[in-house]
Amino acid sequence: MAARPTALRKTGRVLLYLAMIVAAAGILLPFVWMVISSLKTNNQVFTAPIEWIPDPFRWRNYVDIWIKGDMVTWVRNTMTVSVVVTLLQVVTGSFAAYGFAKTRFPGRDALFLLYIGTIAVPWASYMIPQFQMLSSWGLANTLYSIMLLQAFGAFGVFLMKQYYESIPDSLCEAARIDGLSEYGIWWRIMLPLSVPALASLTIITFVTTWNDYLGPLIYLRDRELWTIQLGLQRFVGDYNAEHALIMTGSVLSVLPIAIVFLLGQRYFVQGIATTGVKG
């Protein structure tokens, strides 16, 4: 690409960057608004026309949220649930995906369609039977319920299966000839090769669990079990809402994800090792 850095190419680059920066600013606008609103008083948040600069800046919101809300507990609960769910989803999902992608058994495709089929059913429409079941096991109003709800979703299986399919079968074949068992192939070949997919699944599962609202709403009652999303909801009363504090909490709740995402960057685009697999 560095063959002929002509002036034309350079201006193209500059224009591309300019376009990307403008697009990025546009994409981030809602987040910017969140940050701005988190520095306002409650009655300044919604106005017509929009006020882009808080007057005065109310930094106290970032102190109040810890006092008025139990952020420490909420973050701890959300973190616990998200980490456990992500672990379970990634491990069982990629394990099952190997079964669907690289082994053969009767009814495999039908079973897989069943998995996808359940994704197509809105959760709200079966949450009551599910809740009755889990609460009859005494799991309602515990963090376990939320973990169980999210951990065995079909999405992880689907994502990993599709990824495994783009890894050539001949690799597995060769490994079998070398005497590896199917479990060995999964562990020693598939997992290392699927880092970008695992990274995507991890971040997506983590974010989805982190931001889940309806699940905790139905299952969690005790204050000490609340997650961030549920906790922030308590700033919405019947007739009043503390929008400024909600935005403060939302900003704080996005930060860990943004950091994880930025740190995990290189795994998303890690060229996988099929390139190194040549003879």
Partner: peptide
């Protein structure tokens, strides 16, 4: 072998999602 791969996830999936669906 195929089933052993699928089973850990499928067990949770069947009980928690499939039955309610």
């Amino acid at each position: 072998v195929g089933w052993t791969f699928v089973l850990p996830n499928f067990a949770g999936f069947a009980v928690l999602t499939l039955i309610p669906v």
